[in-house]
Design a protein around this nucleic acid. Structure first.
Lengths: 195, 195, 195, 195
DNA sequence: TGCTAATCGAGACGGTACGTCGTGTCTTTTT
DNA sequence: AAAAAGACACGACGTACCGTCTCGATTAGCA
């Protein structure tokens, strides 16, 4: 099956963003329709009327492509600011879990792919570090509010959140209540515990 | 490279245990030497001097084979009792990480396989719940010692430990210092916090 | 386009002659219809409903395949025995030229292929030596008849005939009169020259 | 590997001879170093620091390019006059074979290319007829000397020499002894035969 | 004792994907 | 108008794995 009707041309000695867009569209579509097994470079090229060379020029391996698909679908998001770090975490987890569910668990597949593909592992590492950094914003606000101690090890907390999120993804529990999870994860770090 | 020197014969109208053993040995060995990529049915058959028919007869897919390898390798183990929950956790993590490293990260591949193999996912779930239960022993001793509050949610703590262990496995950080990790994970739950 | 309707199965741990036959049929057909450019391993496999692996198992390179096609089309032939070596050569050349014409000049393509493919060159060399040996039969009869001197260097004469035949093939003169050519080539070697 | 260090620029609305020269140099060099397989438009462009556009503008196909390379390399040469036709032929063959060897057997590739390129075939035909005419000079001297009969068919003899030369080229036997070949080819035509 | 039935090694088979390479066309920017 | 540069669609290359199959040899248990 073919995704685009027409193929594109070169636009000179530089990469054509239209090609990348068409490829990602076709790939995301394929993934949704056929699952991970159907997401081959051959099939994507066929569907996008692109050449495999072009695919490999943009993304040198399957993992890079998966990450690109993921990034494109995920979109941007700001961290919520509810005034409570537990709620902030809960809301963020809710949004992330929803996204993971809708995308056919692409992200789980990326993690799986990283287990036997060095390059994917590398890309995933960079992505993970970016996410860890992202959580710091939320946590720093909690410190400012006095919810967390000023000497709390924020990267450790961020990684803990991430570890739980991944576990829930990998064990197919994305339907769990995010608030409960957020509470379980964050509770021990809070300064004033509920009596 | 070839694992067995001689090939086996049929021993009549029943399965030959030697064949199964040779196959699992060869598979485990391949996994250690060549990594996850090299663990193909073709390569295993070649190395074990077995026929693909035999492999497929016993283990119809890669997931089944992986679980068989893992079950064969992993042995039993008791939880240590050092008098400090952080040390207990650290020692256990050290042992688990060492095992995971030596096995060529089979367990990571099983998690990966579970992402697109229902049967493997099911087996993995049972295994995970067993591990969670196992941690309770260590944590209950900590409660008895007064390190943890009596109303601490032990399954939540156990799952937190597991989440971090998995994260470290999946992100290829099995060489990290187990004590640091144990400390980071357990610290917030301890009763005596630093003022 | 597809040549065979059904694909074949394995017939055990040995090559299936039906597969080879279907492949050669499809290849010959493709060559006739599409020319040398269309004769790719991919296209042949597609047309014959065979896997590329099977093609490569039988013929490791294009030249070997070309030779096989040639051999299959060419068929067997005995050297004529007219009582005159010039006529024998003329008749054989006539038959060879006719075959070369009908086959879309496959043999010229084989020679061409041999110019940049070591393996083809090797196969062609073996074939050529076989042909040289074949000519000896005709020449020995001529020696017996007294047409050629007993100390004539038969391989040299045979190679001379072959050189001329190749030249006519490669320069697209297969329509030339074989008797004139035979006469030109053989005349100087004959013992009794026509006055 | 790169043939030119710097790339050239346009010299206005006309072709840049430096570009043509660099391209032919690079092509000839590539042919010598990498063989016929390595002589691709991509590789030439890379080595000559030229753009493929320029290559295709000047030589629309491989045959045209090959002929250009050959014309550029081959120089002029006179036929030797040793007093013996066999030696004349031997010396000429020696020179031709040496040239063919040094050129990376370009001429063989031209013959090959002519098998599926009409234009190349045409050029090759003209070249061949020129060579036949060239041989007449040598043969006429032999007639004058009495080595050949006055009613010998010189074009036939010339073509015979050429047929053998081509055969040796195409079957990769350019290292053969030219004197033996010349003797084998010319012997039967000589007037004084060994009794 | 001979027959049946299942297993074994072996490896060919049709498929399909891989990642790379060459082809000929194109656009852009510079001269 | 020509030059370098290089992206593009296309499609072939040769290899690897997959899962299925057929074969001939083997051997235990049943008749």
């Amino acid at each position: 099956m073919q995704y685009s009707d027409v193929s594109r041309r070169s636009i000179g000695a530089r990469q054509n963003p239209e090609a990348a867009a068409a490829i990602l569209d076709a790939a995301a579509d394929l993934l949704r329709r056929e699952g991970l097994k159907g997401l081959t470079f051959d099939a994507i090229a066929r569907a996008a009327r692109a050449s495999k060379t072009t695919l490999y020029r943009w993304w040198p391996n399957r993992g890079a492509l998966l990450l690109a698909i993921y990034m494109r679908i995920k979109g941007e998001h700001a961290h919520p600011n509810t005034g409570s770090v537990v709620d902030d975490v809960a809301q963020t987890l809710a949004r992330v879990f929803a996204a993971w569910r809708n995308e056919g668990r692409i992200f789980a597949l990326i993690i799986a792919e990283a287990q036997h593909d060095e390059a994917v592992a590398e890309s995933l590492k960079a992505f993970r570090q970016d996410r860890i950094a992202g959580w710091q914003v939320v946590l720093q606000r909690a410190v400012a509010r006095g919810e967390l101690s000023t000497d709390a090890d924020l990267p450790v907390i961020a990684e803990s959140i991430l570890a739980h999120a991944w576990l829930y993804l990998l064990t197919d529990r994305l339907d769990s209540d995010p608030l409960t999870l957020a509470s379980n994860v964050m509770q021990p770090w809070l300064r004033q515990k509920l009596s």
